[in-house]
Design a protein around this nucleic acid. Structure first.
Lengths: 339, 339
DNA sequence: TACAAAAATACAAACGTTTGCATTAATAGC
DNA sequence: GCTATTAATGCAAACGTTTGTATTTTTGTA
């Protein structure tokens, strides 16, 4: 069917259709949009010839003229992180159905890349931005500015002092519940490997941990909190160093990767899990279930988070005054590492 | 500093700057672009006032006028698959540095969503598309058409009959080497859980498997190939059913998730891995290393693939006649499941 | 058949850039 | 001091849509 070359296929525009049918571009535009002002007959005619000519509407021109863009931007710390990639899927699912499409950028946990990403998205005039902050982000000026300009939805790692929809996981409840669970198991000496305190996620997890222990009357000397970057390596290193001076029977980590490191380190020095130490992670990464012993963790539902963030965006676009914080429930998953 | 409202910040345009400085928009445009035709003095002046006014260039307008867009589209089967999310990171890394940005869409393994994604990207006039095909895609008309219109780079799951840059993993070599490794270990009765034969990736993996065995003189009756959708569930189910009639001492799977299912099923019926059966996967998912016994697999370097795909795109944009297939090396990773 | 009302379409400006060409200002050469 | 040359800027059209308003065509009614 395609006898003509690239160029001609690519360049078919509303004016070409208009010329072919001896009508005006405006009529074509309206016909394609299904406007009732155009007669049923010409509407059909236009649609058909548009099809046969291989017409592809020019999003750029339309967005420029309309002043609104039906694509939404998304900024995440890392695309290849299980949790975030799941959130992306959820967002995509909802936005796609609503006729929007998604531009995804990653900040790689860097403030500079985050700022760049935001600027890129603004320059391409996205209709809104869904963001989860980088670990490095402690100054929020760029966000405050952004928030005054286009619809902004924050999720997971958020800046609380910025108005608008914010969706977070029940980090406090999750860790508190997890800690309580270990208390019930009879643990006495607790270690928490926490993340940066400037981050709402890690701050809340730490708070859940300490509150649970305080309420249970555990003496301070049996509670230790160490702030790390929650990676496999740091988890391993920190435990290895720490264990020489101090032992625990419960280690609660701010993330599964740190917990993985902890377990590896403990195995290496022949500390038995869960008999001598119980280990708990957070995020329920796919590997948690499959390790040996399998790792207890806290599931946070990424796709659901994504869907909620997308709906929040759709609503925020309609009503700019939207301002709330929703806390999504998480679920403690008990496995061998805490039996 | 921001006394004025949303609207006014958002709307600052090249004309506003021009008015403020009593010069024309064209001068402003050229100044911002660093054009030498504009005097050093006004260039600086314009840039400074643009900054203080919070000017954000309108990508839409520029792309519309220039007829080219500095954003690249990417279509992958699933964003939340470890391999693909790694490829995305690689692509992003390179394109970002080159001043492009990325729009990522997922096909969810469906032809229809793939076609939609492509259309969406074309409508937003991306400068090129990097794609890995959905499993469902067996008809390539939409790709052939696309390939005549904008720069197209295929990776991993490709259509061989379409010209242009194609980057694939050494699926044949990888499986062949893996099979040879099991032959060397003394295995005699081989099972391959293959994926769809219409897919280049799975076809090559199967070919590597059968070629290795044929060359080793393994009799046909000791070779079995079963085509499945390589998921955990199917791996589990197929083995459970199969094992009743037929046993093997080597199971080579087209993917790690299928291998995981296989191992679970075998554990359930008390078949020992690796003593009675050796199991091998493909892709080296993060969990492979952490399982017990740990799963031998074939590493395919996602980020490197992404970087190569991005470079291919940058080159293809410059030179449309580019047409080659590059095979990226993979690496057999031997672990406990094949000891 | 004429005429108002309604339906269908046409006209033209606008969105914010970029860019070829025209114009003005500045410098140089004599 | 006057023209030739170069440097700096201005003008206006174009990219492909959308949309308010104007115009034409059709329909209905008397």
């Amino acid at each position: 069917m395609y006898f003509c070359t690239n160029v001609c296929i690519l360049k078919v525009t509303i004016v070409d259709i208009a010329k072919k049918l001896n009508i005006t571009p405006s009529t074509v535009s309206r016909a394609l949009a299904g406007n009732k002002r155009i007669s049923e007959k010409t509407r059909e005619l236009v649609k058909n010839t548009a099809d046969t000519m291989g017409y592809q509407p020019n999003q750029l021109a339309a967005a420029l003229r309309k002043g609104v863009n039906d694509s939404i931007g998304m900024v995440v710390p890392r695309i290849n992180r299980h949790y975030f990639s799941n959130v992306i899927c959820g967002v995509e699912e909802v936005l796609n159905k609503a006729g929007y499409n998604l531009s995804i950028l990653q900040s790689s946990e860097l403030l500079e890349k985050e700022t760049n990403a935001i600027n890129t998205l603004r320059q391409s005039r996205v209709g809104g931005i869904i963001i989860s902050l980088s670990l490095e982000t402690e100054n929020y000026d760029h966000l405050k500015e952004l928030n005054e300009q286009i619809p902004l939805v924050q999720f997971d790692r958020v800046c609380e002092s910025i108005t608008g929809p914010k969706l977070v996981n029940a980090n406090y409840d999750g860790t508190r519940q997890a800690t309580q669970y270990l208390l019930d198991k009879g643990c006495k000496r607790f270690l928490h490997l926490a993340g940066k305190d400037t981050n709402n996620v890690y701050k809340e997890r730490k708070r859940g941990f300490t509150d649970a222990l305080k309420d249970a009357g555990i003496p301070e000397k049996n509670i230790e909190v160490v702030e790390i970057i929650p990676t496999r390596e740091e988890g391993r290193d920190v435990i290895t160093k720490l264990w020489k001076h101090q032992q625990f029977d419960a280690v609660i980590c701010a993330g599964d990767y740190a917990a993985l490191g902890v377990m590896e380190a403990l195995k290496q020095i022949n500390v038995s899990i869960p008999d001598e130490v119980k280990v708990l992670g957070f995020a329920n990464e796919p590997f948690a279930e499959l390790m040996s012993p399998s790792l207890s963790s806290v599931e946070q539902y990424g796709e659901e988070m994504g869907r909620k963030a997308a709906y929040a965006m759709l609503n925020k676009i309609k009503d700019d005054s939207l301002d709330y914080t929703e806390v999504l429930p998480v679920k403690l998953i008990c496995r061998e590492s805490t039996r």
